[in-house]
């Protein structure tokens, strides 16, 4: 049963290769370095625990992005049920674009995170997958388990929202 065959070794190597991008995706999703790293860790644990569910011939990165995104949504929902017990990550999810400060210390990164956190989660994940991680619409559709047309409309709405947010902060001379 617990026989780590050559496949699981190959799987581990693929997971390691994906980690830097997975971490970026997780930080973009959560808007927060530590929470993003926590999400990456949960994602890797889940992936290693369910390696047998990975479909050979599909992309490990897409599979891990899907796990990360689903864990992230679960966390948001569970916070919604518990009500009070929230951390800064979930505050971002429920408060949206309210000028919340991020822990990221580079100003361009902070600005990018502000724009991303102004998006609803479904638009943010689509934007991150396509624009930052370079997935095709079809690949992003598989990660997010929605039709390709939905990816396109989420990207259109995400960009319109980002442009409004970015334009606003530039127009007001910033904070």
């Amino acid at each position: 049963m617990a026989d780590p065959g050559p496949d699981s070794q190959a799987m581990r190597e693929e997971i390691i290769a994906v980690l830097p991008r997975l971490r970026r995706f997780c930080r973009g999703l959560t808007g927060h370095a530590e929470n993003g790293d926590d999400l990456m860790q949960s994602t890797v644990e889940r992936a290693l625990g369910r390696a047998e569910l990975f479909e050979a011939g599909t992309r490990v990165d897409a599979w891990m992005f899907r796990i990360a995104r689903n864990l992230h949504i679960d966390a948001i929902r569970s916070v919604g049920r518990r009500g009070t017990q929230v951390d800064i990550d979930e505050i971002a999810e429920t408060r949206g674009e309210d000028g919340r400060e991020t822990v990221e210390n580079r100003s361009d990164l902070a600005a990018a995170q502000r724009a991303l956190q102004a998006l609803p989660e479904e638009q943010r994940s689509a934007f991150l997958l396509v624009v930052v991680e370079g997935l095709s619409y079809r690949e992003a559709a598989e990660v997010l388990e929605v039709p390709v047309g939905t990816i396109m409309s989420r990207l259109a709405r995400a960009r319109a929202r980002i442009d409004a947010v970015v334009g606003r902060s530039q127009g007001t001379g910033n904070d």
């Binding site: 991008r21 970026r24 930080r27 991303l116 930052v132 970015v166």
Partner: peptide, 14 residues
Amino acid sequence: NDRQIADALAPLAT
């Protein structure tokens, strides 16, 4: 905007 965000996040993957 796309480029600005992608460039800002690029170092996270390194």
